[in-house]
Design a protein around this nucleic acid. Sequence first.
DNA 1: CACCATGTTCCTTG
DNA 2: CCAAGGAACATGGT
Length: 284
Amino acid sequence: MPELPEVEVLRRYLDPALAGRVIQGVEVRKVRLIRPSTPAALREALLGARFESVTRRAKFLIFTLADRAKAPRFITGHLGMTGRMYLQANQDPLPKHAAVVLDLGEARFVYEDPRGFGRWTLEFDPTFAGIGPEPLSEAFTVDSLLAGFRGSSLAVKVKLLDQSVVAGIGNIYASEALFRAGIPPRRAAKRVSAAEGTRLCATIREVLSEAIELGSSMRLGFAAGNDGLFYYGSAAPIPGEAEGAVERFRVYDRAGQPCVKCGSIIRRIVQAQRSTFYCPSCQR
DNA sequence: CACCATGTTCCTTG
DNA sequence: CCAAGGAACATGGT
C-alpha cells in the first residue's frame, strides 16, 4: 500500500497501537526482505526492544525503539507495492505471504508482502539520503519544485515520481495532481512555467492531504482479510455508514470515462513503463 | 494464455 | 561523469 497518504494513514494506526509494546519473539519468513539478511541477526537485534514511536519519511515508516543496550535505535520499513503491516490476534492464522512476525505477547505484529518489493532494514535505509522535501512541510515550495525540474527533459509526470524532487508521490497521485493543476503529463519538466509550478505545488499538497483525511476518516481496519486499502476506485462500505462508494480519483484508472470537469474522455498513456491518466482538454 | 498492478534498483546506452 | 531508458524483482487479479 504505497504512496505517501496510505503510508501516513498506516502510521497513524501503528503509532498508538505499538507504543510501549515489547518484542518477545521474531520470526522471519521471507529472508529476502530483511537487511541485514540473516534472521538470527534480526532476532538478536530486536528481542527485548520496546516500541517508542512510529514516524514517516516519504514512503518509509520509521520505528523508534528503546530499552535495550544492543538494540538498534530504528527499524525502517518500506511497503513496496503490496506490503502491509498490522496487529493480529495470536490465534489468527498467519497470512500466506508473511515476511516478518513479531510476538508482542498479547498480540502479533505482522509484516506481509505478496510481491515482495518492500523491505525491513535495521537503522536507516541507505536510500534515505537522496530523498527530497516532504510535500506537506514548509520545505516543499514552488522554488524547490521548479529547482527539481530545472534542466530535465523528462516528462513532468515521470519527474514527479523522482523521490529526490519531492518525497512520497507515486503513480496515482502524480496523475491526480497534474490533472488538478491543468498540466499535460508529457510536458518536459523544464518547460513547466512558474504559474504552472505554483498550481502544481498546491495541487500536490491538496491531493495528498485529502487522501490522508479520507483514509483516516474511514476507520478502516488493517487486519488480514480487511486490507485497509483505500486507494482504489471506491472505498469499501463502512458498516452502518451510508453507501460507502467514495469517488476517490478524477483521472487515475478512469480511461474511457468522461472527465468530471469537461466531459471529454479520459486517456491512458504509458510513460516510463507506467500508466498515466489525463484529460486531453483540461490538460494542455 | 495475455495483460495489468500503489515501487525501486540495477544495468546499459548515449 | 551524467541523464535517460529498459529490465528485473514476484505474485495475484481480471
